[in-house]
Amino acid sequence: MTCTVNGVPRTADDVWEGESLLYVLRERLGLPGSKNACEQGECGSCTVYLDGTAVCSCLVAAGQAVGREVVTVEGLSGGPDAEPGPVQRAFLAAGAVQCGFCTPGLIVAVDDLLSRNPHPTDPQIREALAGNLCRCTGYEKIMEAVRLAAGGQA
């Protein structure tokens, strides 16, 4: 299958029909940033942009992504050796990372929120991130990180 991932046309071989986009990203294209947790669309750990829209990549059949544009958490910084992006910096600064498993999905979800609503209220942040579960329950620090990113202070 061929699709654009983080701005680069990529081809994955031996993709079987019905495989998820998440599996293709992690296991075939070497992009393990998107996490595989619930596999039911409930936890948001696998959140990526598909044609500019934030979705759970575990619920996207690989075929559905053919010819489309995917941006993963890796695509939100300038590259593996580049500086982290603003949302990533805010999470670091606020200490909003505990075990870290939910973090990549949250980074994409927050990036999506701030692109549509640069100055969200707390209730708006909570609603926008309702589909991203943190099993460490570190939500207060995550809220702080979003406020920090929105304020451009990170």
Partner: peptide, 26 residues
């Protein structure tokens, strides 16, 4: 038919529905 997939892919994965030939209508 496969539309958004948010239920269908989930149901297939937990085997609540039999294996299928998915026809993507998006």
């Amino acid at each position: 038919y496969l539309a958004g997939g948010t239920t269908k892919v989930d149901m297939l994965r937990i085997y609540a529905e039999p294996s299928q030939r998915l026809v993507d209508i998006n």
